[in-house]
Amino acid sequence: MTRLLKNVIRYGLLTLGALVMLLPFAWMIVTSLQSPTAVFAIPHTWFPSSLQWGNFSKAWHAAPFARYCFNSILVTFITTLGQLFTSILAAFTFTHLHFCGRRTLFAGLIALMMVPGELLLIPNFVTLSRLHWIDTYAALIVPWLASIFTMFALRQAFHAQPRSIYYAARLDGASDWQYLWHILVPASRTTITAVAILQIIASWNSFMWPLIVTNSDRLRTLPVGLTSFTSEAGTNYPLLMAATIFVIVPLLILYLGLQKYIVAGITQASAKGSSL
């Protein structure tokens, strides 16, 4: 009996918490399907009598969301791939190659993980404006092509592969380059997927940097485009919520599909903390 009671309490609390978590999402969807005036009706309704599906196409055309979406996809895609490429090469080097200053360089790079990226905002902005890169795709992408965290997580994964596999591949006639791409990368695909997804989330949702280095509509990413849309939408909450859904839904789908990798990735991420 007490056990049943305990479980009732447990599930009750968890359900209550889950409702709080879901509330903003649910309210966003409900609002997006109502007419601009209906949302102001008090008491609120969770089940609008008529669903305004047209809000989505109205919102989509009210601002260049197609363009924002394209920019977000492009920037996220190239940043993630580029970051994986630079990190894979470096992680391999720190795992298998012998060279002068290896320990020092690695320790130095790890120490950089402590530096808050925001501190670098101003000088980076200055650098980019000297390069005349402000308001270009390069500004959105190039500074993010290296991530020490990604490199570190991959090095941990590469390190976990038995060294005998490296030796076996070399004896089988593979060069370092061939071993890296034919054996090591495919063998570490779980970790690679995990860090890639974390990076996709970070890139897609990144806000402050694209806000600062873009001026024109042409180059805005979804989150920046969305905030500029808020002033146009004013109090048209249904349109605003519809636009919000454009930003949130792609990642929600990705998340629900690849959840186990994200959890694995965060567990990896905690290794960052253990390097304190």
Partner: peptide
């Protein structure tokens, strides 16, 4: 519980 983490901070703050 994890949903908010994958959600754009800016977008959900608007909500």
């Amino acid at each position: 519980y994890f949903l908010p983490f994958v959600t754009s901070t800016v977008a959900i703050s608007l909500v």
